[in-house]
Structures are given as C-alpha cells and as structure tokens.
Nucleic acid binder design. Sequence first.
DNA 1: CATACATACATGTATATACTTTTGCCCGAG
DNA 2: CTCGGGCAAAAGTATATACATGTATGTATG
Lengths: 243, 243
Amino acid sequence: MITLPDTASPLYEKVKDYILANIGTGRWGKDRKLPSENELVASLGVSRMTVHRALRELTSAGFLIRLQGVGTFIAPPRPQSTLIEINNIAAEIIERGNRHRSEVLVLETIMPTKELALSFEFPKRVSIYHSVVVNFENDLPVQLEERFVNPSLIPDYDKQDFSKTATYDYLMQKTPVTEVEHIISAVPADAETARHLGIDVGACCLFLHRRTWTGAVVATISKLTYAGSRYSLGSRYSPSKNS
Amino acid sequence: MITLPDTASPLYEKVKDYILANIGTGRWGKDRKLPSENELVASLGVSRMTVHRALRELTSAGFLIRLQGVGTFIAPPRPQSTLIEINNIAAEIIERGNRHRSEVLVLETIMPTKELALSFEFPKRVSIYHSVVVNFENDLPVQLEERFVNPSLIPDYDKQDFSKTATYDYLMQKTPVTEVEHIISAVPADAETARHLGIDVGACCLFLHRRTWTGAVVATISKLTYAGSRYSLGSRYSPSKNS
DNA sequence: CATACATACATGTATATACTTTTGCCCGAG
DNA sequence: CTCGGGCAAAAGTATATACATGTATGTATG
C-alpha cells in the first residue's frame, strides 16, 4: 500500500501527482503501460471512481492514452505539429493602428445548394443566412468575407448592421464555438472577387475556408478571400504554453 | 421534464450538448446564471453526478465559471482567435495513404545575404547551411522546401541524406523548438519554382515562411512553397482540449 | 442597531455499486 | 492447424449516497 502525501489538496489531485511523478522514470516498464484502475485502487487505497477521475483528467491533458479493454499507456511525446493562430481581421487591423471599415454587399436569407446543405450536415433543406462583406484597411480592400449562418443557432443574423459590428464579433458573442475546421489554400481571383478587392483577375489570393460547430451542429461556414499581395497570415507561438 | 435526444452518445455528453445549446440563446437570463445542479437533475431526470460531470467538463473547457456556494455562470466570450495546425508534410502524405519521396536539389554551406543574416539575428556574418528539397506525393511534386539552418545548433546538417530522412524529422529530433513564427501568404510561382513543381509560371502557390527558435537563438528559417492547385493546409480543432 | 448564529442552498469531493462495451486470449470443435 | 465461442480483464458510464465547504440570508439576541 502506497501512502499519498498528507496535503490539503483533493485526493484525485494527489493521485494525478503520483502518476505524473511516475511517468518518465521508466517505472512503468518499456511498454509504458500503467497499472489498471483496480490495481491502483488496491495499491493506493482509494475508490475506483477517484482513480478513474485522475486518469481521465490526465488523458484529456494529453499525458495518457487509454484504450477500453486494453489498458492505460503513457502518451508519446507531443506530436510533431505546430499551431498558428487566426485572428479576427477587424481586431487585427485596428491593432496595427490602421482604420477598419466594412461594406455589406449582401445580407439575405437563401435556400442552400445541395452542396452547401451537405456541408451544414442538414438532413433536409432549410433556409440559411448569407452575407458578403468587404473589409477595408485604410480604404484599401483586403478581405472578401462570405458567410453562411445556421439560423437555428443565430436567429437574427439578417437584421444586424455589419458595417458597425464585425460579423465575427457578432457570431462569437452569439454562440459558443466548440470545434473549428480550417482549410487554407491559394487560388486565383475570379472576376467577382477581383472586382470587390480591386485586384486583377487571376491574381493570387489566400483562401480560408472555415466551418464552426456548436455541439454537434454546424454553426457557420465562412469563405474568406484575402488579396494575396496585401495580406498574410502571421503568428508567433510558444509550444511550451501547455500543462 | 425535458427529454434528451435518443442518440448513442453517453448521457453526460447529451447534457453538455443541452447546456451548450442553451448558452447564448439568452434562455438563462441576463445575469447568465444557469440552473443549479439539483434543478438540472430534476428537469433532465439524470443523476447529480452526471450533471456535475457535464458542468465540470464545460467549465474546464472554458464555457462556464462555477463558484462554490453561488452557482454556475456562462463565461465571458473567449479571446477571439483560433488555431490551426501545421503538420510535417512527409507524415501528412503517408497518413493519407500516399507515397512520399524527396529529391534533394541543393545541400551546401553558404554565406548568408545581409537580409538573411538579419533574419537569423546574427551579430556578424557566419556561414550557414542551405538546402532545397522537392517533396513528392505519389510522384507529383507538391512542395518546394528551402531551409536555412544555424550550424551552431545543428552541426551535421550538410552531411545527411534527406532523400531518406525528412528534413523536418531530422531538425525536430536534433533540437527542441521553443518558439515558432509563421507567415502564410499566396504568391505567384516564379520561373524556378514553377519548374521544380511542374506548374505554370504565375500559378497560385501557398507560401509558408517559418522561423524556429531554440531558446533565444534562431535555429531554422524555412520557405515552403506549395503548389496551390495540389495542396491545402487543413485542420480541425477543438478549443475544449485544454485543462 | 449590530452582531452572531442558524439555515438553506450552492458546488466540491469521495465512495460503493452496478452495468456496459471493447478487447485479448484461451480452448475446444472441426 | 484454423476458426470461432466464450471468458476474463480493462476502461466507460450511470446512479445513489454521504459528507465537506463556501456563500447568502434571515433571525434572534445583546
């Protein structure tokens, strides 16, 4: 029987500390398999629910991997990927000390195309909101922003004045985002895009496709086109900001 | 009594979805206070532990704020930014079930231009490693990869065979990255890029500029050019994966 | 009137118990 | 030797219960 430290912290935290202290010391074999919940119950003298909570939280924090029916394992060192941050364009422009202005080209209710309804994961055809806005930095158009919005989550989208409130701000305020999908690509400007952004047809544009979810429901689909010569996505990131 | 959806997902997930769906609709008053655990138990017909777990996870995901003795409240909107993930291209290609191959065009030691030395934050001119590699997905060139590497951190870079080990893997293995800077833009292909990627001059390319630091020292500078028509950066991200 | 106490109610922690789902493996039938 | 059934083990979920701890509030008492 192992005795956990006699501090003020809750029991499941002590169990977490105990497990963390034993990760990396090689104490748990070269297959990096932890004792089972029931073994920990026996060796630590706490209930299985408490052990389970400790293990679940360490798993969600990325330290462990658990397989039902198999066991609990130490997670491999962090996956080789880096993150970049995508900011709200209005805020970004203002932060650079420049003036931001929006021009609303379209704000309407439409029936989605079959393809769009599919992207929304709609079982049947329901009408959705559709907006097209051009964002200016010091009177120079930098971003063409087309959005499709799920009206069941954001009811009054079509009644807003998006030349005053940025669409992004309104959406973020109205509904919590639980998941985001991004696809970034480079595309040549089509005729309409070129006209709105004041660039040549065929000029390189950065194209950002974004879907956001609230729970299991697709909340918004956005297609953001940036004039390639006038804009780039940038970020600086420290991986060491995790627990 | 509210009836939760009859799906296969666990009960606490349904409770989380139910709560998320009610956040932002203004359903829970202008003080943004949620019903107490016991009220949710009564209205949803589940046990308090299940409600508690749902609320605890939403709290740790940043959606809620809980005060013992007071109640549960909707958290103020999170900082408005989202993250996208940039993966190792070799790993990405293999994960898609395709074949990855590299062709090393250049691997040499050079004296940096003044501009480059500035990017490295070098006080004086020191020689650096320089590599140019084309990455193929099933014999189709998708990425032109130019790297400048700080020899004081990665000594034997010029002696590796990068048709066998991906440059990325080698660098990640050799030195820990403490900070990353990314700039993504869309550019037309110049003559040389077009030739190496097998695309037309002027075709849209995704251009990724990356600097990595190890401590206070710039370790690598990379210029990655993706054939726009053949590649897009994608990612799906759940903000709720924090502790 | 002000302070102290009692009370109610909120979330936090801990346990015991039961059942479900997934997986790995042994063992026997063919 | 192979296939498949069945069993055991592991994590996952759900509940009932109890007690701990923190907060707000009303009330009795000095």
